[in-house]
Every structure is written in C-alpha cells, then in structure tokens.
Computed example of a mutant assay.
Amino acid sequence: MTAPVFRFAPSPNGHLHLGHALSALLNVRASVALSGQFLLRIEDIDQTRCTPVLEADMIEDLDWLGVPIDGPVIRQSECFPHYRAALERLQDLGLVYPAYLTRAEIKRFVSDYEAGGQIWPRDPDGAPRYPGDAAVLSPDDLKERSSSDAAFALRLDMTRALALVGSDLTWNEYGSEGPDLFAAPYAQTANADAWGDVILARKDTPASYHLAVVVDDARQGVTDVLRGKDLFEATSVHRVLQQLLGLPQPRYRHHRLILAEDGRKLSKCNQDTSLRALRSAGLGHSGLRRLLGL
C-alpha cells in the first residue's frame, strides 16, 4: 500500500477558528500515525473574499499551531484550466445545463408552493432543491435570459448522471482519530439524488466546491480525505463526480465538530472566535488542545 496523503484545505476569506485548528491537527496526527504526508491547499476560488492578507494570516496561524507542510502549497486560483477541462467533459456527456433562477426567485417559488400546505424537498444542507427554470419562468422569460448577459449557474443533471453511474455507489468510511484510525472501515451508501441538481460552476466562478474538491484531490494524489462531519452527506455528490470523471476514490474520514455555545457549527461569517483572538488573549498550545479535546 502506498503511503497515505492527507490534506488541509482552508479558504482565506476570514481568520481560522477552533474548528479549523481541530481539522488541521487531526490531519497532521493521522498523517504521522499512518506514516503519510500532509499537504496544504488554499481554496481561493472566491477572489473577492479571499485576500493575500488573510492568506498570510492563515499561514501564520498554521505555523503557530506547529503544522508541518509536506510539498508545495497548491492554490485553487492557479488551477482554473483543470476545472474547465472537467466541466467540459461533463458537458460532453450531456450532463450540464444553465440555470437562470436567482436565489430570491427560488425562495419565492418555494414559499408560494408551501403556502398551500405542501412541503418542497430540501437537500441534506436544508436548502430547497432546484425546481427547474420552467417551473418559474415563462418560455419568453427563459429565452430572454439565455440570449442576454443574465447571470446563471451551471448545474449537474443528477437524474441523467445517476443513470450513467448507477444508484448503488458507496464509499469506505474510516475513523478520524485515535485508535479509530486503524479500525476496519464500513461501507456507506451514497445518496446523491437527495441533493438534486447541484451547482458545478457559475457565470463568474469557474467551479463550485463540489467540482473543485474532487479535481483537486485527484491532482494532488490525496488518498485520505479527513474533514468535518458537516461534509459527510456531500460525499455522495463527490462519489458521483469521481465516477463520471474517472477519478480515484479516496478513503473518507469525517471528524467531530467544534460547536458554539448555542449548538451551531463555528463559522467565519458569524465572526466566531478566531485563533488570532485566542492567541492575543493568552491561549497557549496546551490550552488550545484542551479546548479541542486533544
């Protein structure tokens, strides 16, 4: 068996918090325990929110954590041609279509639909599944948007995709820390249909998270994806894309989450306590590990 390759892939659109610290340290510990490598990938597709200053701060935080990085740092902003090639391959298979509904239009459609007492289906993240342009737009409206400079998203036709790869996809789920790292895996059945037609790219964005992450992991030779449990369900989508694109399947490991006092997942956009703020308040390495349950 080849040496395992782990990665930590944060976005420099805010400062790292305790949840990032847990993920980074668990990846490092796993790579050491299994005699593997630890890689860093900067997920900076969003060139508006991701800045060089925030990236520099992030690297400084990782250095303070004592995170050793094997090999060069990869940035998504340098990989746009690879995403374009993957997207074109899916388009050649007839699996991609432009979708013109805005978030506000989807929200309004779902609200009107549920006003009648019915429930519109949600994806595993709780967002309404895409209803399709024809459910909201008239043929004239759709023709006007498609022939104009209107914003759009490129979505995966999930029904057609599953018809190609089959609906019996699985992945092997492994333990994320401690003795569980060495335990036997269990097979997990993918449920990509629950996501509906996921976004692969936007007019002004070359790839969504779903598309970029499978392309990046394959290009970097990542064998073990160790990430938070909040991404467990998304693995179903990633398995479909891996099958369609002929990409290798890594071993998946989903770790526990660090939650805020109100029970929600920590978030940059909610300005949850950053590592920099905790450091400024005098938190040391031993205190950090206690907070993280390490």
Rank of each mutant, 00 (worst) to 15 (best):
L259C: 04
D217C: 05
L259Q: 00
T223A: 08
E55D: 07
T170D: 07
E88L: 08
G166Y: 13
P124H: 08
G66Q: 05
W64T: 02
G287C: 03
C269V: 15
A218C: 02
R75W: 09
Q188N: 02
W195Y: 15
L291H: 12
P131Y: 10
L54E: 11
H238V: 07
A150P: 03
L93K: 15
R251Y: 03
L288E: 06
A115S: 14
Q243Y: 04
V240E: 07
A163G: 15
S11F: 08
A187H: 02
A260E: 15
D216A: 01
L294Q: 06
Y252K: 05
L16E: 03
K265T: 12
G117N: 09
R108M: 06
Q242K: 02
D149G: 03
L22W: 04
Y186H: 15
V53N: 01
A153F: 11
L62N: 12
A163H: 09
R49G: 09
A150Q: 12
R129K: 12
N191C: 13
E60P: 05
Y186R: 14
M58K: 04
R145E: 07
G221E: 03
V213C: 12
R227G: 08
T189V: 13
V5K: 00
G293T: 10
G14R: 06
H82F: 02
A234C: 12
Y113W: 15
F38T: 00
A183E: 13
D230G: 13
A281N: 02
P206F: 05
A218W: 12
A86P: 02
Y186T: 13
V215F: 13
R29T: 13
R256I: 13
D197T: 04
A234N: 14
L181R: 07
L278Q: 00
M158P: 15
